[in-house]
Design a protein around this nucleic acid. Structure first.
Lengths: 183, 183
DNA sequence: CTGCCCATGTAAATGGTTACATGATTGA
DNA sequence: TCAATCATGTAACCATTTACATGGGCAG
């Protein structure tokens, strides 16, 4: 479960106490292109990590809003994070539903297949637009050292790259399909 | 759950009755680069699909080996498969543990980080070698129509491409890291 | 006055992994 | 004689998604 470590990483990087709600937002704006999580998952993982002693928790009473719980990393948490980060990098096991569909696509008629691909291409383009926006790119500016900045840049760019390749690939498949099986 | 449809696809493509054990092998040799499943998952999914009426099942008694259950697709199964295959292609949600590690890699010392990347590069190379082997590439030869062959080729090549890009990327990161943060 | 933001959670279901069990056959 | 192959499964666990619940504040 690397959600645990992603959360530890965000909390540690922040430094100041942070609520689950704000962690989710930080999560979505930094790691959304290679990891994602729902509130349900984040809240329950945070309580478990608190029980395990990886996080300190404090309840902040608020009047015009619900109370909130803010978390900070403990030294045990920092140790566990450091240990995890230094583990060997494993190949991601792949799980691509779309490729299963394409493998079996002989069961779909031509017109429909072409439309499926076209719509897919639009979706990839939309995602790419978000990724290439200044807002996302400016995350990297908040790095505190040149080295940290390097790591952030590399991860973000990998996300962008992945979608760029996806787009090229889908466009090429569409073109080839049309050339070979008419339109 | 697209394991269900991957299995239906394999059983339907085969035509003849096939056991869970053999499905696993077919699975590993055709879709392993974009989907995977354990025996546990395959056996339990097959019984459920049988209950749902998507598969016919027959027990084959054998002497010198354990009995086996062989499955064939029903027309209800074929209908459900055709319906699923024609669904819109969705963007894969990404889940890349390695990128989480790299984002937080400022907590790792240089020597260790370089070694992690080097080992990662070796793993990617090994996987690529398997993918580019003749054995894998020859799967495509078993397609029965030109169009089916096109779909199989496209999916397989996407797998190969993904790992080729991964390799290039990792090598580039390593080179850049060395240039900027010494060795 | 509608809908989104703040903030946290429970419950249930689904999906997926890991460990364990069985036991004959076959090839190196 | 050792390991691999054949063949299927149960049990327990971990991870993830979806649906539901609460209720004030604030902007258009």
């Amino acid at each position: 479960m690397s959600l645990k470590y992603a959360l530890l990483g965000i909390i540690d990087t922040r430094g100041r106490p942070i609520s689950g709600y704000d962690i989710k937002k930080a999560f979505d704006s930094t790691m959304q292109f290679y990891w994602n999580a729902t509130y349900t998952q984040i809240y329950s993982t945070l309580s478990r990590m608190h029980e395990e002693g990886l996080l300190n928790m404090e309840v902040i009473s608020q009047e015009s809003h619900p109370n909130k719980k803010v978390y900070q990393i403990t030294s045990a948490g920092r140790d566990e994070l450091a240990e995890w980060v230094a583990k060997p990098l494993e190949l991601q096991r792949i799980r691509n539903e779309m490729l299963v569909q394409i493998t079996l696509a002989d069961r779909v008629d031509s017109e429909r297949f072409v439309r499926m691909l076209e719509e897919y291409i639009l979706k990839v383009r939309e995602t790419l637009a978000v990724l290439q926006s200044n807002e996302v790119q400016s995350i990297v500016e908040r790095a505190r050292t040149e080295r940290e900045r390097f790591f952030w840049e590399v991860s973000l760019n990998k996300g962008v790259m992945t979608y760029e390749r996806e787009l090229e690939w889908a466009e090429r498949v569409l073109k080839t399909y049309r050339a070979r099986f008419g339109d």
